[in-house]
């Protein structure tokens, strides 16, 4: 998994490439933790995320909670297979998926 970030004013885009699984989720969590401050809107671009396991779901949920304190988190370009996992677990009702 690789993580790339782009900042445009108060909007931060995090581009994730690869699977968010038990091994990579802690890396993503750490990276996101360093980015919350000052970001009003965080966009996670999921176009290149091929699958997410429950370890990844927890990190995304944590990010959503963190951002809700002072802004919002948006998941963009979520592929169909990943969307299915969000739906299966009810996460689609909580997260903002565009």
């Amino acid at each position: 998994m690789t993580i790339q970030t782009e900042k445009n004013g108060n909007v931060l885009t995090v581009i994730v490439d690869g699977s968010i699984d038990t091994v990579t989720a802690p890396t993503l969590e750490k990276e996101l933790e360093s980015l919350y401050e000052g970001a009003e809107e965080m966009i996670i671009d999921m176009a290149k995320v091929d699958y997410v396991s429950s370890a990844g779901l927890r990190v995304i949920l944590g990010a959503d909670r963190q951002m809700n304190d002072h802004g919002k988190l948006i998941l963009r370009n979520v592929i169909e297979d990943v969307k299915e996992v969000f739906e299966m677990t009810g996460f689609d009702e909580i997260l903002t998926i565009e």
């Binding site: 699977s19 699984d21 038990t22 091929d50 699958y51 997410v52 396991s53 429950s54 370890a55 297979d81 996992v85």
Partner: peptide, 20 residues
């Protein structure tokens, strides 16, 4: 099929993570 591959990987991830 790619979908089956991902389902197997996710399931293996969950079970192995529980053991670990």
């Amino acid at each position: 099929p790619d979908k089956t591959r991902k389902q197997l990987l996710i399931s293996a991830d969950e079970i192995f993570t529980n053991i670990a």
